[in-house]
Amino acid sequence: MRDSLNEKAAMREPDTSTRREFFSQFLGLAGGTAALGAVSVLTLRPAEATPAMLATAIRNVTGAAVVKTGKVRLDIPPLVENGNTVPMTVSVTSPMTPDDYVKSIHVFNEKNPQPNIGNFYLGPRAGRGQISTRIRLADSQKIVAIAQLSDGSFWQTSVDVIVTLAACTDEVI
């Protein structure tokens, strides 16, 4: 995110580009005072979803129901090359028969500005309780996946992800 925005500006204003690209790509090299003087630009963090927001978003889906741990598996690379596009697969253990199937899968995160990532509605005809998509992660954080089964029960899992290059959502250039 840092780049596409910035590079659009870059086509008009090479100076901005030079500075921003430098930060986003080669900061590791600098270390000198020249670089440090401007680092404040980077320290502006996006507004993060708080644990309370995450809890509320989850309650909006589960209501008062107890969310048990298990049955849900979340596959996501533990170390992410770029937070802009992180592949993710959620699979739920279920026979997927007409009376025992996965109704929905809900994915949440802790630290993006908004706690919801996606809701996926399946049904008995899916054959397999599994979905994949690609998500954005603004920082290293916890991802939570919750599934609702046809009997109304909720199951969850969570995974910690380390992001080396984050998807920055609120940068002032």
Binding site: Q114, N119, I135
Partner: peptide, 17 residues
């Protein structure tokens, strides 16, 4: 199949089911 997407879905949404 149906999905609600939020801003945290990556550009050029890729969904498999």
């Amino acid at each position: 199949f149906r999905a609600d997407l939020f801003p945290a879905i990556a550009a050029n949404p890729f969904i498999t089911f």
